[in-house]
Design a protein around this nucleic acid. Structure first.
Lengths: 345, 345
DNA sequence: TGCATGAATGAAAACGTTTGCAGTTTGAGT
DNA sequence: ACTCAAACTGCAAACGTTTTCATTCATGCA
């Protein structure tokens, strides 16, 4: 039982009695070879379990066939879907993908980006907190590695996202169509997400345009968890909002759960909606009203743009269409209790 | 505006006036160098934006510092959490991770595994459909790349999982404690998930032990979606089950949604529970009863075992503790309508 | 003075590929 | 028989590191 390290090109070459170059061609430019030679090579390669070593190949050819993906967290199914979109497109193009998560932490963001660059990924898809202040992005620009932002919007860098401003506005319009006028926007920390900020502005602008009272904004300490106290005091105000617009679906879900523990039912006592359109929301009972962004496509398009940048064509920014999902967590105001019944003081 | 390709070791060496070897040591064995030399090297390296090329380094040293992760889908938050656990542990050890998803497709599984091997990942963490019949696993065994299964249980390969059989049994016991006796197990296609099979067996065995009537088993065409027809006919049987045990949380959620569209409320009309304990379930209203498996830890432990295998210590299989989460989708039978009211024919 | 010692560096050979160039063979056309 | 192209294959030099083995030089010590 001898230990055999994985064979290399030259071992195969020796076995078959040809030069390493020929073995290489058997895999990369098979059409150049004599049929018989090619078969002989492929046969012994298979027999010895040989597969060309990409490390060697990358070094020589200068191409690793690897893309980097840098996302805040996979706990949010939105990013998970984005990954799958990017992976699918990458796969088609013969690329592998190296994934790293940042946990919304700009320090980890930097080091992870560096690590990916060290591995010589040929391009990067990433979501940052705020593209206009991101040190990571500066570093990336300095290196000559092409990258495409996903979800972020930016004037100075290529990105793929939805039109957050307009999308949030559309949700406001929908809420108004349902009879709601007193709105609140609930978000995580704004400095950690330019998306949340744009959505908030979208909400405010549209409310103004529609002559709605200025929406209240409540900021939660975390992106994805609802703070009981802030929620309680929001609902305890003299004229509480009749609809809560949460800046993402995970937050919306947490808010609904927290409200429920406060004795407030959705949508009976008030309406709640989110942003993201995660697949999951449609399965909730009641189903979660949300602004759907095509995450899989955001991933695959970002990858597409990256690939064309690699092809030397330069990549264009694009806003993919969003879609309003009018789930059951938003009800017509006429069906809601005018004043939540359970929430005192 | 001149185009400068990223500099290499030797460019730095020339700049500084030392040999490439010395530059290399400045990064890997700094203590060997004269302080002045080291500083000089590091300074110009920083000035020129040099970072050691891992491709070259991997080739020479034979170590890519990269691990492979092969999972069915990230759409299931369980696997996403597993990834994050593995990534965290890998990061600590200075490894990067290359992720690929298989979509539960054994063909993609094979090609993805091969691709990872071609990239010379040093080890693999993966979840397969059925470890006892997996061709991918055979290939992996043939190559001398260490791997650890996640979620799968196996006699012949190292794995990290929960004790699916016992865990499912515990849920049965809990359901019985709530007064349920007529149970149904709902799963996806069994041949695509050994976990589902083990859970089913766990359910049956425990039911037998507890003198419950044999649970009905209904298999859905997909892992994650509920087939309306099968659900309807299940509930239309003369003595329908009072509790449905779904083989995963995503499926449970889909089932609840489908039941709702059939006019059946959970838990008022019947109880439903899942398996996985995804974070999300606890936020649902009503919260999803489930068997919680520590996915993050499964990932990180699998990675830990892999690392120790790489360290030559050989890796041990382990079953991590599960935890019963008695969510609100399971109610005491006494609180349920004995016969679902809305389901005729 | 001579010599061992240790510290700091360099020379050069790998690692596994790819690829431009050149060489050989073959067969066809004249 | 001679030329020429086409088809096939080989040579050898890269790619960017790491690492073994020497080499140099200063230092301490007898």
């Amino acid at each position: 039982m001898s230990f055999t390290p994985r064979p290399s090109l030259v071992q195969i070459a020796e076995q078959v009695g040809v030069s390493p170059a020929t073995v290489s061609r058997a895999f990369n430019r098979p059409e150049l070879l004599n049929d018989a030679t090619r078969e002989r090579i492929l046969a012994t390669a298979k027999r010895l379990g040989f597969r060309p070593n990409k490390v060697g190949s990358s070094l020589r050819s200068g191409s690793t066939k690897t893309l980097g993906l840098l996302l805040p967290t996979l706990a949010n199914p939105v990013f998970a879907a984005c990954f799958e979109g990017a992976e699918a497109r990458a796969l088609e193009a013969g690329y592998s993908v190296m994934l790293a998560t940042t946990g919304y932490d700009s320090q980890r963001e930097r080091t992870a980006a560096r690590s990916l660059l060290d591995h010589r990924v040929e391009g990067l898809i990433l979501t940052v907190s705020d593209p206009s202040t991101s040190a990571t992005l500066d570093e990336l620009t300095a290196s000559d590695v092409p990258f495409v932002l996903a979800y972020n919007e930016s004037d100075s860098h290529p990105f793929v996202s939805v039109d957050n401003h307009a999308a949030a506005g559309d949700m406001v319009e929908y809420l108004m169509a349902c009879g709601h006028r007193r709105l609140a926007m609930i978000s995580g920390p704004l400095d950690a997400s330019d998306r949340a900020l744009r959505r908030l502005e979208g909400v405010r602008d549209r409310a103004t345009r529609l002559d709605l009272p200025a929406p209240i904004h409540v900021s939660m300490p975390q992106h994805t968890a609802a703070d009981r106290g802030r929620l309680k005091s929001l609902m305890a105000s003299p004229k509480p909002p009749t609809a809560l617009f949460c800046s993402n679906d995970l937050l919306a879900t947490a808010v609904i759960a927290e409200l429920s523990s406060l004795g407030l039912r959705v949508p009976r006592d008030l309406s709640v909606c989110g942003f993201d359109g995660m697949a999951f929301g449609a399965l909730m009972v009641p189903s979660l009203a949300s602004v759907h962004q095509p995450s899989f496509e955001i991933g695959s398009q970002a990858c597409q743009e990256l690939l064309s940048a690699l092809g030397g064509e330069g990549s264009r920014s694009m806003r993919l269409p969003h879609r309003l999902f009018g789930g059951d967590t938003v009800a017509s105001l006429s069906h809601q209790a005018v004043q939540p019944s359970h929430c005192h003081s």
